[in-house]
Amino acid sequence: MMRRGAILLVVSALTAIGCALMLALLVRVRSDGEESALVRGDAQARIMLIAACHYVQEASRLGWDDPGTPGHEECAGWVDARDGTPGPKTLGDLVAGPSNDHPDDRDGNRVYRRGSARWPDVGGVARCPMPVWQRTRWAVLPAIQNPIAADPASPEFGIAYLANPDPAPAADDHDAFAAGDARTRPGSDGRAWFRVLRIAPARFLVTSGAGASAGFRDWDEVEAAGAAAVFGDRAAFGRIRDAETRHWWLIEWSASCGDSYMVTRGMRQQDTYAWHPYNASHEDLGQTNYRNPVGSIRWVQHLDGEPAAW
């Protein structure tokens, strides 16, 4: 009996040591995981700055088309390229008057209403959750449509044929190709967002975030948007907000796109702030005749802390 008791003690002690080691390992792994999540969140929030810059650039001209009209309404920039007044305003003749406004769009509405303080007016906010769609609008397949035969025995060996349309649409019919598939991909919902406060005709305060708040600033804003059911209650939203990574930036849009030299060379690479390695050899690959009709981001300033309004 004495010997059996000793064995029990030894086994218990070893088990306790093993459990302690396992617990320490789990704590360490959890700690590493939490730190890695912070890195991932920070990177995700920074990617959202790029998305916000693209949004500001494109919204200077595009995205105002009324699908119910045969035409395609476009605008002339955040600072109207025709007269320097705040935009975006639809293309067309100027309307004489003290506000120097532009005509209504084809639906009878004005894209931009000065003094409303609602997006896209100065003082307005655009809130943009960024789940990933199953398939974006006008998506094309990433596959190579016309591979060059690599078999030396093939009569087509080494010859580039344009036998199939390239690129190929990712949807079978045109309507689906145009509409995309707006269902969110699993795991991409509630991961990242950005919001843009227009503080001057060409200046924007961007908040980029990684987390599940969908870019709502506070609970009052959630309730005003009718989204309370998404988060449950104020406390739950507060916990989500506190766990997020956020960055604040000032950016300035410019109607300037790029230089004319590239146009004369048939290569239109006119984006101003696109970050690439300085010896990137892939620059000349792919489609070269793309254009930038939506301006550029002239400068970016990271803010050290949370501004009073965003």
Partner: peptide, 16 residues
Amino acid sequence: LTFTMLSTTLRGARQQ
């Protein structure tokens, strides 16, 4: 590890 990043530009840094 080498990577590029969209971040504060020179003018933004001078404004800081």
